[in-house]
Design a protein around this nucleic acid. Sequence first.
DNA 1: AATCACTTCCAAAGCGCTTTGGATAGACGC
DNA 2: GCGTCTATCCAAAGCGCTTTGGAAGTGATT
Lengths: 343, 343
Amino acid sequence: MNLRQLSEELGLSQTTVSRALNGYPEVNEATRQRVQAAAAAYNYRPSQRAKSLATGQSMQIGHVIPFSTQHEMVNVIFSDFIAGAGESYAKHGYDMLLSVVNDDQEMHAYSELARKGSVDGVIVHGPTRDDPRISLLQELKIPFFVHGRSTDASASYNCLDVNNKRAFQRATDFLLDLGHTRIGLINGLERMDFAQRRRAGYEAALRARGLSVDPKIMHSDEMTEPYGHSATCALLDLEDPPTAVLASSIVPALGVRRAVEERGLTVGKDVSIICFDDAISYMPNGKGEPIFTATRSSVRDAGRRCAELLIGLIQNPDQAPVAELWEAELVVGQSTGPAPQKG
Amino acid sequence: MNLRQLSEELGLSQTTVSRALNGYPEVNEATRQRVQAAAAAYNYRPSQRAKSLATGQSMQIGHVIPFSTQHEMVNVIFSDFIAGAGESYAKHGYDMLLSVVNDDQEMHAYSELARKGSVDGVIVHGPTRDDPRISLLQELKIPFFVHGRSTDASASYNCLDVNNKRAFQRATDFLLDLGHTRIGLINGLERMDFAQRRRAGYEAALRARGLSVDPKIMHSDEMTEPYGHSATCALLDLEDPPTAVLASSIVPALGVRRAVEERGLTVGKDVSIICFDDAISYMPNGKGEPIFTATRSSVRDAGRRCAELLIGLIQNPDQAPVAELWEAELVVGQSTGPAPQKG
DNA sequence: AATCACTTCCAAAGCGCTTTGGATAGACGC
DNA sequence: GCGTCTATCCAAAGCGCTTTGGAAGTGATT
């Protein structure tokens, strides 16, 4: 059943039927009722394809997901971000278009989406320092929204980020206050903007107390469980092992805990752990008292909000630029305690 | 730049340009070269919207993701399935359309996608016993593919599943062979088809050895880390606690391990653990020797294959029904050992 | 009774592509 | 030189919707 058939069935023009269904005022209320009833009876849905072509809007928002064996970072938090964004999309009648591409084709994927006109806007995930995607999207003249920030980006852009520097500065301060002076950092990949900011916060806190920054106890890699484990093993094998560890996500933090416990040490006593907790739904940080002391900010909420803001941007392109900065909360759990007294 | 403009620029008809670009034979090779060169020069991409309308194909495949606080199961394995499916889609020129909806609107979401014509086919995730989506999709006459199976489904369908029963039967046998006679089950939600099959395998193995099935040591819930933890606590609090546990995913297995270690018990010695390992990319089961003894089957591979098969179905609708059944491999890791001698 | 303003509807022109059904021209055989 | 074939190209008709620019009808106003 298409619009023409429906209008013939009703003895009305396509114009009137279209207007009746789309809530335009130029149609008698009685007629509108009749049209809506018929549409419901025949289970009529306008073809999205035709609608897109006519309106010039696809009502779809694109996400480009690069895949490779190296680069799984997106995955960890991705599903929750998507869930949040998807909620917002659904609320506004948008759908989500995912384009999974090889790492080296990411830029190309964005231009394809834009030029083919299959999306009305895109979300940029995991920005790096001076991310090239930002200027590309600006050239392509397609609305886009960055989840995170891109230090030194030449072009301007709309974004939402967590105050990563502040979060890790506070976490480090918290450990310093507990008497820890040797604190390991198990960071994400340094090319990620958020990882650089977190390290900056960590270093700033140390320097503020006159402590030196020791590269030997700073790691950076894809945030997997085994990475957390092996990095921690390396830390604990040092002559002067750290008494506390800062992990960039709950996933490597699980590996940290495994490494600590394997050695018969106790988390929160021999070794304190603080992690960044994205509040991933299936990996909550405990039920009551958190397992890990953590800097917490829900990535699902971020997804919801990014989507909301992007839709606003699409519907009102001349809007003033948006740059939201969320503060992570510091929640105290079981994984931290005072620095052990030196033997 | 659209087709008309490009054809005017070239002094050719739209027909010829279209045919040249789409590889039809009715065009001189020299002309084709000229057209392709011009298209490249102007960075021309045909509008996907117009193309869809003209061809009747959207070149998009739909996934409906229900969200709610109860029901996070999809998330755990979802991102990896998506990554795999996305690879296949990309290879064949398809995109992925995600529709995130409230739990109770899932059925509706499928009919919308089908009737609006925004997708050429859909993937069904996490089927339950006699899943109503299957008959719905059959009515809607849209190609679909089920990841998993639906026992008692009234309608016929194409699917790919892991032999869940066999996997858990083998895992249980493995534990029985090690001398364990009291084995806890930490299963997924029982309304999921895979959970029922896994339980069936577990029970079959026990009964084959004349052992009784004890509901007191069988749990079923959303597969989160805290669930694994609390279920294990409950098991270990029993008068006659199990010496081994079977977990339905690596995520609750992490909670199992936490609960075991919290009590000062040793995994693989005091308590053995086997889990189902979906080979989630960011949560690999160790690097060398697996952390957990597990029944393993890559959900990413499954995604890849499901997508491949669905595309085949779309391009050739009269094809014979497909029903692939994959055997999980049983990999032995550090989490299992002989049953402890009773004190 | 003529004018005006509204309300309600419609015919038709896109949106940018694909595809059908020729048209044209050169090659070929006789 | 004529008919036939093939290679190459084109005009135009969709695909199913939205939207522009009226037209017809209705009632109020003058």
